[in-house]
């Protein structure tokens, strides 16, 4: 009986504007914190992340060094802040590459269907079968570890699943009557894609961007940790993690300080993507 009743009240009700949920506020605040770290952090801290001071290794927090110093006596706080810039650059770059491949390809295959779809989908499937870390390692093995290759490696490991996602969304959008209506009006395929398909993809892309940013931050750290990402001494969250690894037994606080920003940033992205999804879903049915 329960299931029957759920469908009885089928008329869409005007969606009540909800209060901003707590988790969204938390996510947004954390996101803002990360953003501030990136933009004004280095300036605020005012320390050189590359200045080595062997006499002052493993200093505790306090004084000029807010978070203490590392194994070479460098300022940890500024290494984290400058590292945030590198990591953010990598994350944004990787997501941009994945998006730049996934949207055109997903739209093309999903919208056109037919043999184009068949061929491209098989290729995507092939890539999909390879673990993404393997793709990343392959790229790095080919071009050597650097910021650029990390961007490339991550971007290339994200596009297959993203393309699939876009494609299936487009297949759904394509069969909606508003697409038929546009076609009957004489809209060209390009116009239909622009006015009916791309607009429909906006929510998905927004959500996926935040999700992927979270992934990318995590994966950059993982690659850095494995020594395959940004190479020390260059600062990034991943390389910071790699550097602290060697002293994890004697100075675990260094690893902790390296890990916390990653956790917070990823958490922020996940919270934001969840609340975006809720909000956009509510709008669609409202």
């Amino acid at each position: 009986m329960k299931t029957q009743v759920a469908v009885l009240v089928t008329e869409p009700r005007p969606a009540a504007r909800r209060r901003v949920p707590l988790l969204t506020t938390v996510g947004a605040s954390l996101g803002l914190l990360v953003l501030l770290t990136i933009v004004i952090g280095p300036w605020l801290i005012g320390q050189d992340p590359y200045a080595i001071d062997i006499g002052n290794r493993f200093a505790g927090p306090g004084g000029a060094h807010w978070l203490g110093t590392d194994e070479l006596g460098r300022d940890v706080a500024s290494r984290i802040a400058y590292g945030a810039r590198a990591t953010a650059l990598i994350a944004v770059g990787a997501v941009a590459i994945a998006t730049a491949i996934a949207i055109p390809l997903g739209v093309l295959t999903g919208f056109l269907g037919g043999w184009v779809d068949l061929v491209v989908t098989r290729v995507v499937d092939l890539f999909f079968a390879i673990p993404s870390l393997l793709v990343a390692i392959g790229v790095i093995g080919l071009f050597g570890a650097s910021v650029t290759t990390t961007v490339l490696a991550l971007g290339l490991s994200y596009w297959p699943f993203y393309t699939r996602l876009i494609r299936s969304a487009v297949v759904g959008l394509r069969s909606r009557p508003n697409v038929d209506a546009a076609r009957v009006l004489g809209a060209s395929r390009l116009r239909v894609i622009r006015t009916e398909i791309l607009t429909g993809l906006v929510p998905l892309v927004l959500v996926q961007t935040t999700v992927l940013l979270g992934f990318a931050i995590l994966d950059e750290a993982a690659l850095g940790f494995l020594g395959l990402g940004v190479q020390p001494p260059q600062a990034s969250w991943g390389s910071r993690l790699a550097e602290s690894r060697e002293f994890i037994l004697v100075h675990p606080e260094l690893a902790l300080v390296a890990g916390v920003p990653i956790v917070l940033a990823v958490f922020a992205m996940n919270l934001l993507s969840d609340s975006l999804r809720d909000r956009l879903d509510a709008k669609r049915t409202g």
Partner: peptide
């Protein structure tokens, strides 16, 4: 010619909810 035809013949759709893009 095909575009001209579109000016001559139009359609009104059954499902009023889905006949419009909700984002426009």
């Amino acid at each position: 010619r095909s575009l001209e035809f579109r000016r001559d013949v139009q359609m009104i759709f059954q499902n009023t909810q889905n006949a419009f893009n909700p984002r426009r």
